[in-house]
Design a protein around this nucleic acid. Sequence first.
DNA 1: CGCTGAGTTGAAGTATTTCAAAAGCTGTGG
DNA 2: CCACAGCTTTTGAAATACTTCAACTCAGCG
Lengths: 248, 248
Amino acid sequence: MFSDRHFITKPGGMPLGFPSSGDRGHETPVEAMFGRHVRPLRAGTTLLLEGDRNDTIFCVMTGWLSLSKSLCDGQVQIIDFAMPIDIIDPAAADGTTSCVTVEALTDGAVAAIPHASWVRLTEDWPEARHVMRSMDAARAARRAERMLRLGKGTAEMRIAYALLELCIRLDRVPNMPSNDFHVPLTQQQLGDYVGLSSVHVCRTMRRMARNGILTMKNHMDIRILEPEALAELAGIMREDLRRCILPF
Amino acid sequence: MFSDRHFITKPGGMPLGFPSSGDRGHETPVEAMFGRHVRPLRAGTTLLLEGDRNDTIFCVMTGWLSLSKSLCDGQVQIIDFAMPIDIIDPAAADGTTSCVTVEALTDGAVAAIPHASWVRLTEDWPEARHVMRSMDAARAARRAERMLRLGKGTAEMRIAYALLELCIRLDRVPNMPSNDFHVPLTQQQLGDYVGLSSVHVCRTMRRMARNGILTMKNHMDIRILEPEALAELAGIMREDLRRCILPF
DNA sequence: CGCTGAGTTGAAGTATTTCAAAAGCTGTGG
DNA sequence: CCACAGCTTTTGAAATACTTCAACTCAGCG
């Protein structure tokens, strides 16, 4: 039961940036690799726990994943979301254990590829390394922006930034930015992403809505009414952010 | 005027993990590359500002650098410290601008290598890519641990963690952990690292000292008296952390 | 000696959390 | 169709962790 809104390629299609056969019947080696390892995923499934042994990387085909860590008292921090196109390497420095918990937030599909196979594949294909660098840089930039606001920003800034970031990541069509989007998250999860309690997330978003900056419908269908005002709150210009956190 | 305590290789030596000529007079290609681009650095120098055009990566030979971002109101968040061995790629997703400000915290030396040269060099040398993956994983794990505490941890936990992290990164001799170390930081900078005001950093560290967990001498010479208690406050076991954030 | 910058301490202010209760929505079974 | 359970959201009130402001100390340095 895949939800359409989370598709960025059709099922089985190639993520942007990787060479594709263009659906003409024969597969590229990368398509073959992904195809061999792809598996469906139900919302709520845990793929991996922090500290688990793991030697695979994940490529998200459809749906959203969360990468999180938690404290012994049960508090959770979501480190990042992964959506279609994203390739996740959960490995810690030792290369054999995962430093994050990986969970499916929605139904979807993901390819779990043994790291060794992935390395072998990219050996023969320098372009892939170029694509990976771009993805790595985007991920790092995104996390750094959020870390800045986690450390020094107000609740309003953190939430405004998070919404802007997600809005940008969800933009399908370049040069045709949309201000309407859906995030498959509860306020609790959004709070875990920006380091706030769900109560304060609620209050803050409600205030933004009251001020005419955005509207919210049935659990997180968001429409940004005043992109400029939101960017102002987030402390960044939309186009700058887009350039920094979007690969390709 | 290099301060001895910041050397991890002797000047001009190769960082751990990279093949070295062993000082027998002829250079490996990597040594040659680093040597060609190395330059000395004085404490306080800014190498790069957030948003600057940049197509180089940096390899820290000696000294400490900080990677930071700041809000328009002037508040600073230090994203990470870089020390000898570390290779920094400050690029944002567009590949041509830097997403962080890079500053020298101490005197030292760095090699600034054009990204294209670095890619060419590693094309011929798959091992380097392996080393880089290990470094990337260590960096990501470190930042994720800190992000967790930035979002969900108390001041005490953030500082305990930061001290433990720095202590581990400064350990020279594997299997011979030391609890004595120096961090070339003001309390203000430590606060910028963990998202706290300098005043609160002071109070919190003083409390730890009062409780017999550590001692501090002349601006940040730290001795951990109770490693177990500090790890408890930080919410992590020292050996686990070491394995996750130390490459090689 | 008087300056400067960092660290220290107290008191007041503020942002955010926690606790608690109620309201809204969704699916399930009678 | 209703009743009910379970979950998320919403709102208020009290508690708390951290910041800000301001004054003072201390060490290094011309």
